[in-house]
């Protein structure tokens, strides 16, 4: 059983999309990132559409019947999608770092589950006092 004991604990963090606070976080994130996010999202949509088309085309073919150019294009698209994904993550992370409400919500739920300790707890207390001023 040591396999299970050594395994990392996996937790699901559930956001309630109908709660006013979550709605606010979403609308603020959308409006302040819209400018940078929009081109990324539309590029991503185009790439994904192309990827789906390529996969559909090769569905009935055997591996050696697929032209090399298509294979290259697909791997190129995959790479681009991965890059876009990490760009998007970086962009959202940058925004999230400045949104106190996000950190506060996370800390509150960690606190409720006895997982907020040490430095993180101290930061939470400081931030809470800061927000009350």
């Amino acid at each position: 059983m040591s396999f299970y004991v050594d395994m990392a604990d996996m937790y699901t963090v559930i956001l309630n999309e109908n709660h006013p606070l979550i709605k606010r976080v979403l609308s603020e994130a959308e409006s302040s990132c819209a400018e940078k996010l929009q081109p990324i999202i539309s590029e991503n949509e185009q790439l994904e559409a192309r990827r789906t088309a390529l996969y559909d085309a090769r569905r009935d073919k055997k591996e050696d019947e697929i032209p090399q150019s298509e294979k290259d294009e697909l791997s190129d698209i995959e790479q681009k999608i991965t890059k876009i994904k990490s760009d998007k993550e970086a962009l959202l992370a940058e925004y999230a770092a400045g949104d106190k409400c996000v950190s506060q919500l996370i800390d509150i739920t960690l606190l409720q589950n006895n997982m907020l300790t040490g430095e993180a707890l101290n930061n939470f207390v400081k931030r809470s006092i800061e927000m009350m001023k």
Binding site: L15, N18, H19, I22, C33, L92, A96, A97
Partner: peptide, 28 residues
């Protein structure tokens, strides 16, 4: 995606704990 991205990026890194962010429709 935006919501999970924003929250996932702020989840703390803890030893032997992993967090996955999900969005669900619940009551207000």
């Amino acid at each position: 995606d935006i919501l999970t991205g924003v929250f996932q990026s702020r989840m703390p890194k803890m030893e032997k704990k992993e967090f996955y962010v999900q969005v669900q429709a619940m009551g207000e």
